[in-house]
Design a protein around this nucleic acid. Structure first.
Lengths: 341, 341
DNA sequence: TTGTAAGCGTTATCAG
DNA sequence: CTGATAACGCTTACAA
């Protein structure tokens, strides 16, 4: 029945210090509004009892949770792990804590998790990409929970985002591929179904082709799931064709690494036989052999800036500004001129 | 003043459905205890109003938050990212949500974050390794918050853990190194200061040396921080010696990759000139050239099992069982016989 | 099966 | 500067 020693509450502290609960609360939250002597006495009792405020009660009374939720595809891709790591560090610095959920690229799960986090009183939400059921945005507005989109920057979007231009970044990369004289280019991309970043990257490649006078309608895109193995399969299928591509633009580094590894297994030389490019510039990109030509994305910076912006939105009750981060093309050995045909 | 439309509460639903708040609560939490007709009516109103329960209020009333906290060194190391990913997936399946904090290997921050999570009403905590200020355990007991240690398995420890034997795993690996005839072995490890896993791995190497008749006191351990660059520096310093080691056992794959990459830069061939081993078997281990001989750790399995166990501890109010997971040695090209001297 | 009402531990308002 | 006291929104005996 009795759980032995129970957890001390504000009231216990108040009793111990011979003051009211209000005074204890003030001593803790706005010490300047309490007499020095009283405060010291209160803090001593707090220490003695090992009092920790009850969070739920505080949230309910203050209507603030100092909690931020992040709903991401998966932590297993280093781009999210890094970005979220930086996001969390900045949040911690500002007195917030992070609730994390991954939805494994399943929009239904994502939706569920968004509701869940709101219900749990998250003060704000970090979302990846703009592309989701509009109901979600209506819901968030109704609940008055600010949300910020990251991993993309889109001026045309209605809501603020912190990230980079997926389309033009990929275009720059594709330009490089074209400069090397490639004509037979195929893209291996993750599913574009509920993923605006993927769609934009595809558009970026087409932009480059169009500028180059190529007929961009001819861009072939092979869809792959987000893992090394599946990208390897896609790569293998392409290379077994009678007339294989001379360059393969992958949607991200993980896919590109999958292609490179499979190439090695098949005895296909990169870049002699075929060029491969990635996107993100994760650690893997420099470690794989040959190192990947890819687009460098400042993931940590993005996470950190997103945290700053989101906290501002929460605390200042402002709509939030979009922030564009620059990407840079990293030219490495996986790209070179096509083999003489 | 008036915030326009405000968020619907239980009471709004009750009013809308013409029932009491208790009935609404029951319709949501234990539907079987409510008449079918009433329940349907209630749920319809819930839908209409877009009602979501207020989490803080629920926590306060039920004294349960369905939230679990994980306090890890960093998400940037893939071993934690993967393990935590699986941990979160299982938690989600069981109706819990995950609060994540990283402490960047700083025990002061860790302590702070533990208190923070407890204050926020986490129902249970996942911690990495046993090694921390005993006050923390006293505190957790006093607050009656169950905690589970992962990434290690230690029978001798007072508290339950889900993980693997760091010591004997490393011993197995070191045995392999010795089998290849290496005599000059040096270890590059992360700081062992507040890290029992590191200490155990060092002991493991010594165990192997002792069994092999070598004088284990002679094991030299070079300390590195947890990044590729620092490991590279350590490696370089070792190889510049008059009499460099023939095998370098690294504390984990990240350090080993740092050594391999630096070797390439210096024109040192692995494994011809020197063997290198890792620990963890993250993706990187297979992708680096040459691929690493390392210890495979079932990170996802560990995360998943930890979630199961921790939820059991929370729900059944039991002390919790330790679970030992098996590791396996992955022999790959980075290890071979020492060069003829 | 349903309703009533007493908490849960804070914060915030308003007096003093 | 300090103290009462009313919320905050939900769960859960207990009663009907």
């Amino acid at each position: 029945m009795a759980t032995g020693r129970s957890i001390p509450t504000l009231e216990d502290v108040a009793r111990g210090a011979g003051v009211s609960t209000a005074t204890v609360s003030r001593s803790l939250n706005s010490p300047e509004r309490v007499g020095e002597k009283t405060r010291d006495r209160v803090l001593k009792v707090v220490e003695q009892l090992g009092y920790t405020p009850n969070f739920a009660a505080r949230v309910m009374a203050a209507k603030r949770s100092f909690t931020v939720g992040a709903i991401i595809p998966t932590m297993e891709n280093a781009i999210f792990a890094r970005g979220i790591q930086a996001f969390q560090e900045e949040l911690y610095r500002r007195g917030y804590i992070l609730l994390v959920s991954s939805f494994l690229y399943d929009p239904t799960i994502e939706k569920d998790q968004i509701r869940n986090m709101v219900a749990r009183g998250a003060d704000g939400l970090l979302l990846i990409g703009h592309d989701r059921d509009p109901d979600i945005y209506t819901y968030l507005e109704k609940q008055n929970v600010p949300s910020l989109v990251a991993w993309t920057y889109d001026e045309s979007a209605a809501r603020p985002s912190v990230g980079f231009e997926n389309r033009s970044s990929m275009e720059k990369l594709a330009q490089e591929v074209l400069k090397y004289g490639h004509k037979k280019i195929v893209a291996i991309m993750g599913s574009s179904k509920t993923n605006d970043r993927v769609r934009q990257r595809i558009e970026g490649i087409k932009d480059a082709l169009a500028q180059h006078g190529s007929n961009s309608e001819y861009l072939e895109v092979v869809e792959s799931t987000h893992d090394v193995e599946s990208a390897g399969d896609a790569f293998e299928a392409l290379m077994r064709r009678k007339s294989p591509p001379t360059a393969i633009i992958c949607g991200n580094d993980v896919l590109a690494v999958g292609a490179v590894q499979r190439a090695r297994k098949l005895g296909i030389n990169i870049p002699e036989n075929v060029s491969i490019t990635g996107f993100d510039d994760i650690e893997l990109a420099r470690i794989v052999n040959p190192p990947l030509t890819t687009v460098h994305v400042p993931h940590r910076e993005m996470g950190r800036r997103a945290a700053c912006e989101l906290v501002d939105m929460i605390e200042k009750q402002v709509p939030g500004n979009s922030i564009e981060l620059e990407t840079t093309i990293m030219l490495r050995e996986s790209l070179r001129s096509p083999p003489p045909s």
